[in-house]
Amino acid sequence: MSASKDTGERAPRRKRVVLADRRGTREVPRTIMELEEQNSVGEAMVTHLMKAQLRGSLVLAGVTVAVFLALPLLFWSLPDFARATVFGIHLPWLILGVLPFPFMGLIGYLSVRWAERHEREFLHMVER
């Protein structure tokens, strides 16, 4: 607990940055220094990344929540739909017992793809 408190109070102005996964140490790109020093440019870039990530997550969460909140309402308001059968299996059992899992898998896959794309764009911007 002392470690972070110390850094909060007397933050060192300059740091040596050892980069991950960069074959052969080149000169440290100036933008990364800007990020570390938290000037307006760096902060704007991080804010931009955060907004992009949050937007992507909110869209995917919104789709999921809309689908899952609509289902009970649908079953409740349309009793015939709740009684329908497909191949001898009750439709609600199929919709609630099987389909949500591949659906959530798909949303999860998309979220990884989107998040990694945003990070690539950010890296591209930083290492320009």
Binding site: A3, S4, T7, G8, A11, V17, V18, L19, A20, D21, R22, I32, L35, E36, Q38, G42, E43, V46, L49, M50, Q53, E119, R120, F122, L123, V126
Partner: peptide, 26 residues
């Protein structure tokens, strides 16, 4: 907190930039 920007940077910057810092290690 005064260091909110640094914490945000660490949490959201891609791994390759190497801002990750393990508190248990410290």
């Amino acid at each position: 907190p005064a260091d909110v920007s640094r914490v945000m940077l660490r949490m959201h910057a891609p791994d390759r930039l190497g801002f990750i810092r393990d508190r248990a290690v410290e």
